[in-house]
Design a protein around this nucleic acid. Structure first.
Lengths: 210, 210
DNA sequence: TAGATTGTTAATCGATTAACAATC
DNA sequence: TAGATTGTTAATCGATTAACAATC
């Protein structure tokens, strides 16, 4: 599937294409041209065609792209055609928000277990998912075929838990802590740094006013 | 402050510089060279110097950068030297997570009020902040000098509420809903699309395995 | 003064846009 | 066939890296 290396710039646009194609699908659209998509998404038609052609020719000259087919294919490229099993570390508000968000499950991201240092939470459930004590983390991961660890805990704890995850062989971490994790080459980290995002907004406010 | 236009690529690196400088400050470091920072942050020294020089010469030849001073200056560039007043729309888990995260307040982001459609929540408090019914939104914004509206509600509601915010003159929206808001030119939007982030991770998992 | 390190210019690299031949 | 629109090559633009003179 990957002859040449695809740039992260392209990859970060794929979920957005996927989202718009999903909308078109819901509206019952059968086909869409790069020009039409360009207008809706406010990116150049040229970029859309270039981006898609990194992965193969999904369109047809004189016709455009079949919405259902392209949606399906981008889904596959994004790995949404297979199930992912996650553990969530941190049963606070942020962790609960993620556990309660049903759409992740719809896309194949299944939260298998939640872990928290607070023993009074253990045994309780967030939606359908049980909360376990931290010392059961390693055993759980090894017996439940876990792909992704989600860190919704403060930064000091995140560094420590990340190391535990790495030690028991986890290959991907979705990190919400405000820290850059140091991980081996074969471990993937995707960061969601909320405060960075808010600061960007703040910068743009300050700049616009000047 | 802004002679030439600064690219968003540069801006999105500023919070990360700020974070590392904060750490250095906490460790008691007095000075840092671009080379040293380069090693810690894993970006080129050249990029650090280029980025900083967009905003002025903060360093000194033969010495490097004074940590306290540079931290302070980047804070100012990011607009962290002034207070921002926010309203949060959506008192669910995600909204509560943000309301409970004390560090935003430490950086001058003050949550003045929380709004929710669920009337049973109204009158209650999340940390120190009261939850109000949706029909008080406009009046509240106009009487409390609100800069930023934070949308932690589902996508259909987000579009509608965004329009209400725009109509009563809000100039910045921090959007957590999985939708691209259509706003006038003078309204800033910063998106946090969690599912896009998770899909990127999923792509990278699928690709690494191939 | 000698050494270190910035600020900044020039070179390179990569990503975006434009153009158009291929083709449905 | 004529019109539309892709896939793809070439041109442009912008961002990153390298190099080095200025200077602390």
């Amino acid at each position: 599937m990957e002859e040449k290396e695809i740039s992260q710039a392209v990859i970060s646009r794929l979920p957005r294409y996927f989202r718009y194609l999903g909308d078109l699908k819901d509206e019952g659209a059968e086909r869409v041209s790069s020009q039409e998509l360009s207008r809706i998404m406010k990116v150049t038609a040229s970029q859309i065609r270039q981006d898609l052609n990194n992965f193969g020719g999904f369109g047809q000259q004189g016709y455009g792209y079949n919405v259902d087919y392209l949606y399906e294919e981008i889904g596959k490229i994004l790995g949404l055609d297979r199930k992912h099993h996650l553990v969530l570390i941190g049963a606070g508000n942020l962790g609960s928000a993620i556990a309660n968000y049903m759409n992740f499950e719809k896309r194949g991201f299944i939260i298998s277990g939640i872990f928290d240092v607070d023993l009074t939470l253990c045994g309780k459930k967030v939606r359908e998912v049980e909360v376990y004590p931290m010392d059961e983390l390693e055993a759980f991961i090894q017996t439940h075929d876990i792909d992704i660890g989600v860190l919704t805990i403060p930064k000091a704890a995140a560094v420590e838990v990340a190391n535990r995850l790495i030690d028991c062989g986890i290959k991907a971490i979705w990190n919400f802590a405000h820290v850059d994790l140091q991980v081996p080459d074969d471990v993937l980290v995707e960061n969601v740094h909320l405060s960075d995002s808010l600061m960007k907004l703040s910068y743009n406010i300050a700049t616009r006013e000047a």
